[in-house]
């Protein structure tokens, strides 16, 4: 990019990050990638009641070359996946992806041959929004969380440092199966044994 790539880490870069973040989140243009039921809720979010024009986002750009945010709204079938990737590639940087709905986040209720089990198999996702379909208020909440991400986005030298750090964290991260959630671990030794 420009000036911000060359600034050294410090107060000047942090101020530029704040201004750039504010400007970017203030007019984030979504790309029309409405596929199924979630697309209708996305359109309703753009409608008069749940107006996203107040966030500067009512211009759904049809051309991905003008768009910043790709809201993948709906189930992505195997046939649609290459198209999704092509549209993502055509978007210029900086770009963000919001997986709207359970079908885009993880395949949803359609755990079968025809649906890609989560668009993160195809494009890198910044925000997952569950729901079937998520209410417009939920979509606005997810969009505002992305706005916060954008506001705090680092540039230039800070961004490169953050990328290295994230890479280390990702390499060391445990797989989901190894994590402990609400499932209580079975004790390794049984508390009672028929052998006494």
């Amino acid at each position: 990019m420009g000036l911000e790539e060359k600034l050294p880490s410090g107060i000047l870069l942090t101020s530029v990050e704040k201004v750039a973040g504010y400007a970017r989140k203030g007019s984030l243009w979504p790309a029309t990638f409405g596929l199924a039921c979630c697309a209708i809720e996305m359109m309703a979010t753009g409608g008069p009641r749940y107006d996203i024009a107040r966030f500067g986002m009512e211009v759904f750009r049809a051309s991905p070359r003008h768009a910043d945010l790709m809201i993948v709204a709906g189930r992505v079938s195997q046939k649609m996946a290459p198209v999704l990737r092509q549209i993502y590639d055509q978007m210029p940087n900086p770009k963000w992806v919001l997986a709207m709905g359970v079908c885009a986040s993880s395949g949803g209720m359609f755990n079968n041959y025809a649906v890609v089990q989560g668009v993160d198999h195809v494009v890198p996702v910044d925000m997952y929004l569950p729901g079937c379909p998520p209410r417009p208020e939920m979509l606005i909440d997810a969009i505002l969380k992305i706005h916060d991400q954008i506001q705090d986005m680092k540039l230039g030298a800070n961004a490169r440092a953050e990328m290295l750090e994230n890479e280390q964290l990702a390499l060391a991260a445990p797989s989901i199966l190894d994590k402990e959630g609400l499932l209580r671990r079975r004790p390794r030794t049984p508390r009672w044994s028929p052998m006494g």
Partner: peptide
């Protein structure tokens, strides 16, 4: 309905549903 180069005929009974196991934390 399927991509042009798909192999197999999905709704036959000998074609598997094709889903993947669902991962949870620990199960």
């Amino acid at each position: 309905e399927m991509p042009d180069d798909w192999a197999g005929h999905p709704q036959r009974k000998d074609y598997p549903l094709g889903g993947i196991p669902v991962e949870y934390k620990g199960a």
